[in-house]
Amino acid sequence: MSDLQRDMRDTAETEQPARRPEMRVRPTAPIVPPSNVSGNALMLVIAIMAFLACLTFGAVSMVRATAASWQSEISREITIQIKPDDNLDMEQALKDARDLALTFTGTRDGTIVDKAATARLLQPWLGDGLDIDELPVPRLVIVTIDEQSPPDFTAMRAALSQKIPQAFLDDHRTWVDRLVAMARTTAFIGTGVLVLVFSAMVLTVVFATRGALSGNRHIVEVLHFVGAEAGFVASEFQKHFLKISLKGSLAGGLLAALFFAVAGFWQGRAIATPQSDQATALFGSFSMGFTGYLGIAGTIAVIALLTTLTARFTVMRTIHEIDQIRSDPSRTDQLPDS
């Protein structure tokens, strides 16, 4: 290689720009720590509250469904009770009462409760081997009616008392009114419990958000001072508490759904047993159906949304307080040193 070629190569190498080292962007850490002790504690509290809220919602739904079922069954029937009398032919009086009731518009069918069925009704109180003829036990006639257009009970009651003085018509209105009042009271109490649970959860989230802000207040102040919008800072806290609330509410809601599923399974397996009969009489069927589980899912969504909105509102209000302190020179000493 000649000297001229060497000089040209050296000149070209000298004129080439030096290769710059590659710049690596350092990943930024989140404003709010993704996992800490307070976050785990808040998640546990939200799970407990979600479980209580879903349990209350399911219980209210079951009671209302049971009361509606009882109300529908009672509203479909009326009862004619005939008291025994020495001068009364009971069997003929039962037939006359049934036939008279069926002459009214709005009645569909009439059934005379025979002696064996009457003995079975009294068996829990008087025991086995009961002879109806030896006791002054009233006899019953059950009349099925049309719920949409029921008969004139006043006229039917007057006609029965005129033809059979020992007959008494019971249209079950008192029991229906009591069931409706019980269902409304239960729904009112359940709604109150839900309001208390949601209120306690909101207060818990407010305190937890303020605690997280207190631990990261200097970061929030620096970011806000250099130009970060309040919405950006609030969105970071919002994402953090959204994850916590979703995990907690899902755990509590799934636990409540599992409870109802297990209770329904036990009730189905233990049917016709004293324990199952008592539970059914007190609480009704533990089967909620698709609507009940959909309500639990809705409760989970409401808890997550409420927690997220509460966290955002708390952060925005705190940043507004910081802005007020910065705008007032006499209160700048309230700001911690960055």
Score class of each variant (00 low, 15 high):
Leu102Asn: 00
Arg269Val: 15
Phe237Lys: 05
Ala212Ser: 09
Leu88Phe: 06
Thr56Phe: 02
Val60Glu: 04
Gly292Ala: 06
Thr310Arg: 05
Ala297Met: 00
Gly268Ile: 10
Leu250Glu: 06
Leu250Asp: 03
Val220Arg: 00
Ala281Phe: 11
Ile296Gln: 02
Pro33Glu: 08
Leu140Glu: 03
Ser72Glu: 15
Gln238Asn: 12
Cys54His: 00
Phe153Ala: 06
Gly211Ile: 00
Ser69Gly: 15
Leu223Lys: 05
Met43Glu: 00
Trp70Gly: 02
Val137Trp: 02
Ser245Lys: 02
Leu282Lys: 09
Ala272Phe: 13
Gln16Leu: 11
Ile303Glu: 03
Asn36Glu: 06
Ala29Tyr: 11
Leu294Met: 13
Ala50Cys: 09
Asp86Met: 12
Arg19Asp: 13
Gly190Asp: 01
Leu135Thr: 09
Val205Lys: 03
Thr154Arg: 11
Arg26Trp: 12
Ala47Asp: 01
Thr291Leu: 14
Ile300Trp: 05
Val141Leu: 07
Thr118Ala: 09
Ile48Ala: 05
Ile322Pro: 01
Gly289Glu: 06
Gln278Ile: 15
Met288Tyr: 05
Phe198Trp: 03
Leu122Cys: 08
Phe232Gln: 10
Pro138Glu: 00
Gln148Tyr: 12
Lys95Trp: 09
Ser69Thr: 15
Ala18Asp: 12
Asn40Ile: 13
Arg76Leu: 10
Ala183Ile: 04
Ala234Asp: 04
Thr308Leu: 04
Thr308Ala: 08
Asn40Met: 14
Ser245Ala: 13
Thr111Glu: 13
Gln162Thr: 11
Gly227Gln: 04
Phe104Val: 07
Ala117Asp: 10
Lys239Ile: 14
Ser199Trp: 06
Thr280Pro: 05
Phe168Gly: 10
Ser235Gly: 14
Gly190Tyr: 02
Arg26His: 14
Val176Trp: 04
Ala228Glu: 04
Thr79Glu: 11
Ala181Cys: 10
Val32Trp: 01
Pro21His: 11
Arg108Tyr: 09
Asn40Glu: 14
Leu258Cys: 13
Lys115Val: 14
Ser287His: 15
Leu306Glu: 01
Asp85Arg: 13
